[in-house]
């Protein structure tokens, strides 16, 4: 098992830089999820750690070793790909054993490891099948098995669940989580799915446009997003953002309404999560309802801040019945206010 340290990693393709200095430490046995929108550089970062892409600048340490110049096979890692990348002409057993065979392990040892992994993943009866005779979920497991038998210092996952249907995805997500805890192998997991990121990660590294926006536990990222981007990316439905101004202990909204909270002066962006607004007839945040979505467990109210055209979403518990065009009042608890500098987008409270 090993720590991973990333030190100001940069990557350029030709003249364009796609990663602009990524740093961070991943603890022994921890599962870190790298999450961000498509094209933000997640896969590139993971592939650099795997040794499949060259490092333009910066350092990667796995355990005590600086691995920048090492071939993938010598980094003591295992990787699970989005399309599984199983060898189609080999049986499940051969697929899992291939890496060990190359390493020159004795036959009995290889068989022992393969069968042990097959037991963990419930693949025993499929060992002699070819990948094309397996379902998507089973192939996924074989890909995991191939990683496990190597007994590596680090697992790397690149969107391993995105080819599965929704139900299987939830199930496999839990299994990966359990397996990772059980084996205690330091892991990095890449996904663009924020739900997957929140449920799976010990910590999240939120990446945007090649920059690390925030690196923290799921709760930290949810409760104290450090930038407007993180605030908008994590959480569903997405956070509401309203242009506002700070003045003597209040946040003044575009329609002049004053919400208690905040300190200092100046232009800010106010972030309010839909689920943190509380229905309150006298509340300062007044929303003209345009559309309702009944989800059963809760009700989503789409509308605009009254007197402006700033769109807002509010999520209330249970089933509500509200007429379109009605104006509803909401209050916002002080600890639910997220204040960001208008220009830099950084958190200020």
């Amino acid at each position: 098992m090993a720590k991973i340290r990333l030190d100001n990693l940069r990557k350029s393709y030709g003249g364009t830089e796609v990663l602009h200095g990524v740093s961070g430490e991943i603890e022994d046995g921890e599962l870190v999820v790298i999450v961000g929108p498509s094209g933000c550089g997640k896969s590139t970062l993971l592939r650099m750690i795997a040794g499949l892409e060259t490092v333009t600048a910066g350092e990667i340490h796995i355990g005590e070793r600086m691995v920048n110049g090492l071939e993938p096979a010598r980094r003591d890692i295992a990787m699970v790909f989005q399309n599984y990348a199983l060898y189609p002409h080999m049986t499940v057993r051969q697929n899992m054993a291939y890496g060990l065979k190359i390493r020159g392990l004795p036959k009995e040892e290889i068989n022992r490891r393969v069968e042990e992994a097959a037991d963990i993943l419930e693949l025993r009866e499929y060992l002699e099948r070819k990948p094309r005779q397996l379902s998507g979920g089973q192939r996924q497991r074989v890909a995991m098995g191939r990683a496990i038998v190597r007994d590596p210092q680090v697992f790397l996952f690149d969107e391993p669940l995105s080819n599965l249907d929704a139900k299987l995805r939830v199930q496999m997500r839990l299994e990966i989580r359990k397996l990772q805890k059980r084996l205690g192998v330091t892991s990095i997991y890449v996904t663009h799915d924020q739900v997957e990121a929140m449920t799976l990660g010990d910590r999240l590294m939120v990446l945007n446009g090649g920059y690390v926006e925030q690196f923290g536990t799921p709760i930290e990222v949810y409760e104290r997003p450090q930038t407007v981007f993180v605030a908008g990316f994590i959480g569903s439905p997405a956070m509401n953002f309203l242009p506002a101004e700070l003045s003597d202990g209040h946040v003044v909204l575009g329609n002049g309404a004053r919400v208690p909270g905040g300190a200092g002066e100046g232009e800010v962006t106010l972030g309010l999560r839909p689920e943190h607004l509380v229905a309150d007839e006298d509340g300062p945040v007044r929303v003209r309802v345009a559309l309702m979505e009944q989800l059963g467990a809760n009700t989503l109210i789409h509308g605009v801040l009254e007197g402006t055209d700033q769109e807002m979403v509010v999520s209330l518990h249970g089933i509500r019945d509200i007429a379109e065009g009605e104006v509803m009042g909401f209050s916002a608890p002080q600890d639910a206010l997220h204040l960001f500098d208008r220009r830099s987008g950084r958190r200020i409270n």
Partner: peptide, 22 residues
């Protein structure tokens, strides 16, 4: 797919091994 090559690289297969085995 490229991942086949990458997978083989992680498994420790050199170029000729990749050629003959995959």
């Amino acid at each position: 797919p490229d991942e086949m090559l990458e997978s083989a690289r992680i498994d420790g297969a050199g170029p000729m091994r990749f050629f003959f085995d995959i």
